[in-house]
Amino acid sequence: MNLLEAKGISKCFGGVQALHNVSLTVEPASIVGLIGPNGAGKTTFFNVLTGVYRPDEGTLTFAGQPLPAGQPHRIARAGLVRTFQNIRVFPQMSALENVMVGFHGRTRCGLLGAWLNSSAVRREEREIREGAQELLKWVGLQEMAQRVAGTLSYGAQRRLEIARALATGPRLLALDEPVAGMNGTERGHMAELILRIRAAGIALLVIEHDVRWIAQLCERITVLNYGQGLAEGTPAEIQANPQVIEAYLGHPSHG
């Protein structure tokens, strides 16, 4: 069974067809690449997927259940979590607090709990803290736990965003251009992190410009062009597809 199944997704903004009949599937614990030229609708697709926008048409099924369209928090709690192209960490909170926020949906402490500060609540809080520290270590930010997120380097903020997303306990992690603006070494580190996340049983859907980088990572690639699905297949198939080469690889690619 597919983990994520998006069928015939369309989205219009004031007469501009941003997405037209886009379909995509992700199998459990697999890595799928989503590529396409600038303005092809990749980020819009992510926004529809994660509930920031509501699709005009189409269905989204996640682990056999329909995804609650347009409700980001419920989608996140269902196990589909994202990062953002223009990094959106909570800039004034510490790195640790950022990750602790990620645990919100998995913890229970309510108003009374906070006021009474019972032993159960204290235990929960301790577990969140330890879990967050664990995750920071996992992405290589253990030294940065007390740093204010906004002051971290670009690459560190990207990894912090991933740690925060992992804290929600996702089954599918959607990364929006995780290596944009990174150099070769950093790209290597990110690839290694992505493979480790997959090894932990979490599927990934990755938007990327750099086809060569994504091709070495993922099992399947979907190509978007002008808001429509252009091709779908293994990296080798995609790289050999003449339509893709014309639409996308024909342009000078960077990286």
Binding site: G51, H73, R88, Q92, E97, H104, G110, A114, E125, R164
Partner: peptide
């Protein structure tokens, strides 16, 4: 508490907060 932390997150970036599963 967890709630105060969530409020702070909403104050800083509501969209990101919702995307992390916070019922804003």
């Amino acid at each position: 508490s967890r709630i105060g932390r969530a409020w702070m997150a909403i104050r800083e970036d509501e969209i990101a907060a919702a995307s992390m599963g916070l019922d804003t």
